[in-house]
């Protein structure tokens, strides 16, 4: 069976990569194939990497407050490239009221600070096709 592939990405200018690096490593330890983009990626770069690497999921991390602009842009670009089967989830410093908005824009799930790794690992297992 093909291994589940996940792209962990840091959109925008935010340099707080502690969470993204932890998620990447925890997913790797859970047996997924993980690609981490490093910081300061544009939504265009993230989508192009995701398609090139043929990933099943994109995990977006943002702690700068720009999530409402950047996360939906990734989903929109995926749709434009006919790659909307890639599931997008996210995390960071994201107020509760923004979570609803982001979900309405096609982000499947938002994980707040302090989320145990088994929760996002299970999310991926349950949503993998």
């Amino acid at each position: 069976m093909k291994k589940i592939r996940v792209l962990v990405a840091k959109p925008g200018l935010d340099g707080h990569d502690r969470g993204a690096k932890f998620v990447a490593r925890a997913l790797r330890d859970a047996g997924f194939e993980v690609i981490y983009t490093g910081i300061r990626q544009t939504p265009e770069q993230i989508v192009s990497t995701a398609i090139q690497e043929d990933v099943d999921f994109i995990g977006l991390s943002c702690l700068s407050g720009a999530h409402n602009t950047l996360f939906p842009k990734v989903v929109k670009l995926l749709q434009e490239k006919n790659a909307e089967d890639i599931i997008v989830f996210g995390g960071g410093v994201i107020p509760a009221e923004d979570v609803e908005y982001l979900k309405s824009q096609g982000i499947k799930e938002i994980f707040g600070p302090g989320t145990p790794s088994e929760i996002f690992i299970n999310f991926i297992k349950e949503n993998a096709k």
Binding site: L13, L63, S64, L70
Partner: peptide, 22 residues
Amino acid sequence: DLPTQIGYDSDDPMAEGEVGKC
């Protein structure tokens, strides 16, 4: 904010969504 710290004007495409945020 991050655009100021990384040398982008507020109207630079790289600054989108980040202006005045942190």
